[in-house]
Amino acid sequence: MHDEKTAPVAKASGGSQTRQRILDAANELFYNHGIRATSADRIIEQVGLTKVTFYRHFRTKSDLVVAYLQQQSAAEQGWIRSTVHDGDPLETARAIAAGIGAASCSPGFRGCAFINAAAEYPDTQDPVRVAVDVHRAWILEFFAEIAAQAGASDVESVAQQLMILRDGAMVNGYLGDSAAVADSLEAGFLSILGPGDDGGR
C-alpha cells in the first residue's frame, strides 16, 4: 500500500534531511501523477533545490525511483508485519483485508505503487522493475507463511492465489467500488485458507 507519511528521523543530518525531502516530493508526485510523467526538474522545483544538490543525492532519476520504491516497500512490510496474529492465520488475513480496504477508501488512493510502477517499466532487467519484483517476492513469501500456518497442502499455489486476490483488490479499490474491497477480499482470503479441499488445501 501507499504510505504518504514518513516517520521523522531524530537528529538527522542536513544531507539526510535533504535526501528525505526529495523522497517525500517523489513519493507524492510519482504516486499521484506517474513516474515517467514526473521529471527530475519538477521534483527539484517542488523541493526548492539546485540541480547540483539533487544529483549529489541521486545520480539519476532511476536511482530516485528505486529509492522511492524501497521506501514504499519498507513501509508496506512494516504494516503487513503489524497485522500478524501469532498462530492465527485467518485473523492475519482478516487484518490484511481490512487494511487494504481502509487504504482504498482513503483520499488520493491510486492503487498499488508497485503495480503502477511495473506498468511503466515492463523491462524485467530494469533496476526499477527489479525493485518491484523484490517487494512482490517478499509479499508472496509472507503469504506462503500464512498458507503453511493454515495447513495448506500446496503452499506455493495458495500463496499465489492470495497474491492474485491482493492485487485484484488493490486495482478494484481504485477503479471499482472501494467500499466493498475489505469484505470481498476477506471472503476471498477465507475461502482459500479456511477448511475445505479447494485452493490447494
Rank of each mutant, 00 (worst) to 15 (best):
residue 64 L to C: 06
residue 198 D to H: 11
residue 191 S to I: 13
residue 105 C to S: 02
residue 78 G to W: 06
residue 52 V to H: 14
residue 55 Y to I: 07
residue 92 T to N: 09
residue 53 T to Y: 03
residue 195 P to C: 06
residue 145 E to W: 00
residue 74 A to S: 12
residue 27 N to R: 02
residue 49 L to I: 13
residue 1 M to H: 02
residue 160 Q to P: 14
residue 47 V to E: 09
residue 171 V to Y: 07
residue 129 R to T: 15
residue 107 P to G: 04
residue 201 R to Y: 09
residue 2 H to R: 13
residue 123 D to Q: 08
residue 6 T to D: 10
residue 38 T to K: 14
residue 50 T to I: 06
residue 117 A to P: 00
residue 199 G to H: 14
residue 186 E to V: 03
residue 57 H to I: 14
residue 132 V to C: 15
residue 191 S to F: 11
residue 160 Q to C: 05
residue 54 F to C: 03
residue 158 V to C: 11
residue 130 V to Q: 12
residue 40 A to W: 08
residue 116 N to R: 15
residue 155 V to D: 09
residue 21 R to F: 11
residue 21 R to H: 10
residue 168 G to Q: 13
residue 199 G to R: 09
residue 192 I to Y: 12
residue 141 E to S: 14
residue 10 A to F: 00
residue 193 L to M: 12
residue 72 Q to T: 12
residue 148 A to G: 06
residue 182 A to N: 03
residue 86 D to E: 15
residue 15 G to F: 07
residue 124 T to N: 08
residue 130 V to H: 10
residue 73 S to R: 05
residue 11 K to R: 03
residue 158 V to F: 01
residue 33 H to Y: 07
residue 167 D to H: 03
residue 137 A to T: 15
residue 176 G to I: 10
residue 39 S to P: 01
residue 81 R to W: 01
residue 128 V to E: 07
residue 131 A to W: 01
residue 103 A to G: 00
residue 24 D to K: 08
residue 194 G to A: 11
residue 173 G to A: 02
residue 85 H to G: 02
residue 177 D to P: 13
residue 34 G to F: 01
residue 74 A to E: 09
residue 126 D to I: 09
residue 110 R to N: 08
residue 96 I to G: 01
residue 178 S to I: 01
residue 169 A to K: 14
residue 89 P to Q: 09
residue 42 R to M: 15
residue 126 D to P: 00
residue 21 R to D: 08
residue 71 Q to M: 06
residue 192 I to C: 14
residue 196 G to A: 08
residue 37 A to V: 02
residue 143 F to G: 03
residue 67 A to T: 07
residue 118 A to W: 15
residue 74 A to P: 13
residue 13 S to D: 06
residue 19 R to W: 11
residue 138 W to N: 03
residue 19 R to L: 07
residue 80 I to M: 15
residue 69 L to Q: 03
residue 134 V to L: 11
residue 69 L to K: 05
residue 64 L to W: 01
residue 187 A to T: 15
residue 27 N to D: 01
residue 59 R to W: 10
residue 96 I to C: 02
residue 194 G to M: 07
residue 126 D to F: 06
residue 32 N to P: 05
residue 45 E to D: 15
residue 116 N to Q: 15
residue 78 G to H: 07
residue 142 F to R: 00
residue 58 F to Q: 09
residue 61 K to I: 04
residue 165 L to H: 15
residue 160 Q to H: 11
residue 124 T to V: 10
residue 96 I to L: 10
residue 35 I to R: 13
residue 65 V to W: 14
residue 127 P to T: 06
residue 23 L to D: 02
residue 188 G to E: 12
residue 139 I to Y: 05
residue 183 D to T: 12
residue 107 P to Y: 11
residue 19 R to Y: 13
residue 49 L to M: 14
residue 71 Q to A: 06
residue 64 L to G: 13
residue 62 S to Y: 10
residue 158 V to E: 08
residue 72 Q to L: 09
residue 165 L to S: 10
residue 179 A to G: 02
residue 31 Y to E: 01
residue 101 G to K: 04
residue 61 K to L: 04
residue 185 L to P: 00
residue 59 R to T: 04
residue 136 R to I: 08
residue 175 L to S: 15
residue 155 V to C: 08
residue 46 Q to D: 10
residue 25 A to W: 12
residue 190 L to C: 02
